[in-house]
Computed example of a mutant assay.
Amino acid sequence: MAQPNNFRKRWLQRYRLVLHEEQSYKERWQITGARWGLTAASGGFLLSLIGLTYFVIAWTPLREYVVPGYVSETSRMRAIETELRADSALAALAIQDRYLSDLRKVLSGQEVVNDLEPAILDSSALSETEKGLNEWGLTDEDLALRERLEDEDRFALQRAQSVEQVSKSIPFAPIQGEISSEFNPGIGHFGVDFVAPIGSIIHAVDAGTVILASYTSDGGYVVNIQHLGNRISVYKHNQSLLVEVGDRVQAGDAIAVLGGTGTLSTGPHSHFEWWVGGTALNPVQWLPDYAPEPLN
């Protein structure tokens, strides 16, 4: 029993700390206390210091410099924004690359394959959807509104199809003359050849911007015009050009003089191509003066 009593006595025994002057030994300051009090005070001071340190590091900008690898919220948001912009830039770059690739194929006389397939609605899936809507407890008014919206969408699709037909049409003929060579993509002939006197004027078939006006070995003097609706008109084997890249033209404007330049030319004529959505179309079907008469 002696040892526990001595231990308790040592911790409860009070001590006094006194500060004296060196010369006169005059008492200047003193403090009294037991060991347990000093220990408690030291522990409280230590906990306070830890809490203050945590507050300074966790809730002040100092944490950016103290904590290794810490990324501030502002930097994190900037990184996310930068990543989103990079993804958008990559998507835009992919579209631009696809456009340039299709344009190179157009200029070289190759056929552009459209690999986008239209979506097909599954009737069974639609019936399951309608069943699910009924199970949700939709009223007759809700179902009637849904049917009306579906009818409007159907009419909008029909209007879009009619607009597409109009967009493929060619408002103005490039030249008045006889067709000497028909459209035949199977042999790489993606347009039609018009025969007319040498020196005849070639006209722009619609309003647009000249994207190519130069000489090529096979096509001779060539003019390409970009029109609205992702349409491109191509005019080859000209004797001379009347426009430059970047010029804005209107339907019927003079753009070139008929000739027979280029290695693929067999004589004076005008080779005309009509590309819509990256696909070569038969211009005869869309030219106002050359389109076949509808059957009665």
Rank of each mutant, 00 (worst) to 15 (best):
G43F: 04
E111K: 01
K26Y: 04
Q13I: 01
Y70I: 00
L47G: 14
W29R: 05
H20C: 10
Q30D: 01
S24V: 02
I120Q: 06
Q30L: 01
L12G: 10
I95T: 14
S108I: 09
E64Q: 10
R14V: 12
V67C: 09
I120H: 03
L121V: 11
G109A: 01
L121P: 07
D122C: 05
Y99S: 12
W36L: 00
T60I: 08
G69F: 00
T32H: 07
R16P: 00
L38G: 14
V71R: 01
Q13D: 09
S75V: 03
R28T: 04
V106F: 10
V66G: 00
R98L: 13
D97L: 10
R63I: 05
Y99G: 09
I31Y: 09
H20T: 12
F55Y: 15
E27A: 02
S101Y: 06
G69L: 00
S48V: 05
T82V: 08
W36K: 02
R14Q: 15
D102A: 13
A125N: 06
A89R: 11
T53R: 03
V106M: 13
G44F: 04
E117W: 00
E128D: 09
R16T: 10
K9M: 05
R76P: 00
L126H: 12
W11R: 15
R98N: 14
V18N: 09
G69H: 01
D115V: 13
D115R: 07
L62Y: 06
W11P: 05
Y54E: 13
R10A: 12
A34N: 15
G44C: 05
L121M: 14
E22A: 10
V113N: 11
V66W: 04
L103W: 06
V67R: 06
S24M: 03
E21P: 10
E21I: 03
L46V: 09
Y15E: 15
Y15W: 13
L126M: 14
A92V: 08
Y99L: 12
G69R: 00
L52C: 08
L38W: 11
P118R: 04
E81M: 07
Q96H: 04
S72P: 08
W29K: 08
L19Y: 05
S108L: 13
L19W: 00
L116W: 07
R76K: 02
I31W: 08
R28M: 07
E128C: 03
L116D: 10
R63Q: 12
R98G: 13
M77N: 15
D122Q: 05
E64D: 15
S42L: 10
E117N: 12
